[in-house]
Amino acid sequence: MKTLFFFEMKKIWQNKLVWAGLALFLLLFCGGLSSFLAVNVPFGRELAARYEGPLTDETVARMLADFKPTQAQLDLWKTGVDHININNMQSAVHLRFANSDGSWNGKTVRDVFGSQTIQVGYTSGWLCISRVLVRIVLGLSVLAVLIASTAFAGEYGGPESILLTAKRGRGMAVQAKLAAVFTSVFALAALALAVPLGLAFSRMGTDGLDASTLFCEMEYQYYTSRNLTCGSLLAWQCALILSGLFLLTAAVLAISAVSRNALTAIVCAALFLFAPLLPSVSERSPLFRLLGLFPIQQFQFSSLISVMLTDRIPYAALVLPLSALLGLAALFTARRQFALHQVL
């Protein structure tokens, strides 16, 4: 099994298409990290530390007083510039509690957020890293498609004759193939998650992990509509990334096993990945729950944690086990289809 696994890994990493996918992934990976490194974290953390704690009307008043706009800013706003993001806290408070001249708009914390408890803290860095992860995982998903779609279909049209007539060709060799594909994809996923998150923790420590994602600067105001802490937002995101990758890899393996050749498999797998983005479906529509199962929706996780299953449980909680089940069914199909493959 070890030897077969080694050779299957070799086949994957000798594929030029996989290297092209890896290049795309690394481009998005490095681009994402550099955008995170551009964030002025120490300044943001220091500022957030001044107002840490539950958001109250008193905190709002203090912030509005501290971040009174200068005449230069007001002049800019008058010329049509909606908002100048002077700093993360100013942006967060002005967005919800200020008029265009920077004066209090008369709304209380209860008016804006209802009965929810809003924890003030440093959110910008965590939300930035979350957005970076979305981009990186998009690159990773393309790479996963290229790795998995050629796993079986790449054998068709020649080498499969030897595989399927060999003693271990329909059993252990298939297991080795699946293991090699999943190892490749999930090793890259570990890299894609560990490096940005590791960098984030090294720059921000745990500051802001308990802060509410709703009290964030303007850039992230539509990022999520639920009151979550940055920590739970990232935990949901990581879980959905992993479940989406499992489902994507398993489904693409099944597509690969039933396709006639590698090109057909790649095209079908790409459609499987991206087609769920095409229909414009509201999060309230029942159809969204179906679309939400697709990997691409799991990678763009925010809708799945905003749509609720019950008062307290998001739809994402159902998506995780369903993805695992669908993924296992796809793996079963892939194995079976390859074993039944006929060389015409």
Binding site: T3, L4, F7, K10, I162, L163, A166, K167, R168, G169, A173
Partner: peptide
């Protein structure tokens, strides 16, 4: 490499 791979495939 190919023959070693094929040999393992063949048991």
């Amino acid at each position: 490499e190919y023959l070693r791979y094929a040999a393992v495939l063949k048991g």
